[in-house]
Each structure stands twice: as C-alpha cells, then as structure tokens.
Simulated assay, not measured.
Amino acid sequence: MADQNIKNQQTALGDVAARQLAIATRTVPQMVTISPRWLTRLLNWVPVESGVYRLNKVKDATAIEVDCSSRDEHVLPQTFVDYIENPREYNLAAVQTIVDVHTRVSDLYSKPYNQISEQLRLAIETIKEKQESELINNREYGLLHSVAPSQRIKTRSGAPTPDDLDELISLVWKEPGFFLLHPQAIAAFGRECTRRVSYLARYTINPF
C-alpha cells in the first residue's frame, strides 16, 4: 500500500497549476453569423429626404402617341404623359438596439481588448446583418417581394440551368450590375453545368 502511494505522489509541477502563470493568446470575440455582406456594397444608395422614397411612374406608356411620318405634311397626334396619382412610397426603417455594459466589467476586464468596443463592434455587425436580410426578405420593400411579375421566370426542369440563366438575362433591359442568388441555387446551377460538360465530353470522345 505504501509503495502504491509513493508511485502516485506528484514529483513535479502539473499542467493545470502551471497554466495559471501562463498568458494565453486570445482573439477578439467572433460570431458565425457575420457574412461578407456584398449586397450593401453593390447597391446604388440614394440620399432620402425626410426618410421617404417615392417611386413615380407613367400611368400608361402605351397610350403615348408619336408619329414617324414621311416628308409630306399631315396632322400629328396630340398626346400627353400621365402619372400614377398614388405612387408607391418607401419609408425609411431603422435597425436599432441597446447595448448594456456594466462599468465594473469594463474597468476590470478590458485588457487586452476593450469590452465596450467589442460589445459595440459585435452589435453593429449584427445590425448590418439584419439590414441586409431586410433588404432581401422584408415584405414591404425587400427585393424578393418587389420583383415585377414580368421579370419572374420558372426553371424548365427543376434545378436552374444555363438555359434558365439565358432566359433571365434576356429580360434585363440594361446590363445587370450583379446577380443575387441563394447558395443552394448556386450549388444546383454548378451541378447542372458540370453534368452538361460531362455529357459533352463523353459525346466528343465517343460519338457512336
């Protein structure tokens, strides 16, 4: 029994106790919800007076009469451009919160990183994530809910294909600045492109 105690007796400083004197390398607080947020960088931002953005449009563009006449004189059509009387308005929305930090905590635990600065940084990152999410998904002004019916297409056979992308581009009346796609749509599109390339490669190698 005595021999067993001698074997279990500690003869050197252990790791747990030694770590109390060591300085660990620390990182700033991180969150998995933080994304690159490319959308807010690519959009064309417009200053909004009084927090209201009014979208004025022509009431009926097909009713505007013009004439491409020959050299002979004849009566020209009389026309005017009518406007929508109740145009759609977008009201400025605020994304906000309150960050609480006790003075005792910020005084005692602000080295090497300032507690107040890190709390504000992470809260601001969350606000920016919420801003981008609202720009896409908000039912009043989000991009998904503001698409004109004429600009909506359905895929031909389930997953989006290069043919669907061509059809989508054909609806654009000017050069698009960027495409906004769900990650799963991008993955499905990539698989379809790979499938087509593989099919063409097999056909080229063995056409019979």
Rank of each mutant, 00 (worst) to 15 (best):
P112S: 01
A93Q: 13
A93G: 06
Q131K: 14
W173D: 13
P176Y: 02
A159E: 04
P183V: 13
R71M: 12
T27S: 12
F80D: 06
A22G: 10
D82N: 08
Y199T: 13
R19F: 06
R26H: 05
Q20G: 15
L92M: 15
A94R: 13
S35T: 15
E129S: 09
S106R: 08
A17N: 11
R202T: 06
S50H: 13
Q115N: 05
W45T: 15
E140K: 09
Y141N: 04
N5G: 08
E192Y: 06
V66P: 00
F178L: 07
Y83S: 11
V66H: 00
A12E: 15
V197S: 06
D15G: 11
R152Q: 12
R195P: 01
T126N: 15
T126Q: 11
Q9R: 10
R88Y: 12
R71L: 12
E73A: 12
Y83C: 09
D166G: 08
L168H: 03
L168A: 12
P47N: 07
R104M: 12
V16I: 13
T40I: 14
R156A: 13
P160H: 00
I205P: 04
A188Y: 02
Q119V: 05
P162I: 05
N56Q: 10
R202E: 07
D60T: 00
N91F: 15
T33P: 03
C193G: 02
L143C: 06
V81N: 00
L120G: 02
I98S: 08
D67N: 13
Q96L: 05
S110M: 00
E129P: 04
E49W: 03
D3A: 13
R196G: 05
E134Q: 14
A18N: 04
E49V: 09
D107S: 06
R19W: 02
C193T: 05
S35G: 10
P176M: 04
N5F: 14
S69M: 07
I124D: 08
S150A: 06
T27W: 04
Y53P: 04
K111F: 02
Q10Y: 11
T97L: 07
K174E: 09
R152P: 01
P149N: 03
S69F: 04
R37P: 02
K128W: 14
E167A: 14
V101Y: 01
M1Y: 14
N138H: 08
P112R: 04
S146A: 06
L165G: 03
L135Y: 03
I127P: 03
L144N: 07
E118R: 02
Q131E: 13
I98C: 04
W45H: 12
L55N: 08
D67A: 15
D82E: 11
R37E: 06
A188S: 14
H145Q: 11
F80H: 10
A94M: 14
K59V: 00
T194P: 01
T126F: 11
A159Q: 05
K111A: 11
Q119W: 02
W45Y: 12
V66C: 02
L42T: 11
A93E: 13
R54H: 03
S35K: 14
F208I: 10
P36I: 07
L42W: 11
Q96F: 12
R88M: 08
V105T: 14
L165Y: 04
L120Q: 07
N86T: 15
L43A: 09
S110P: 01
D107N: 12
P162A: 03
K154N: 07
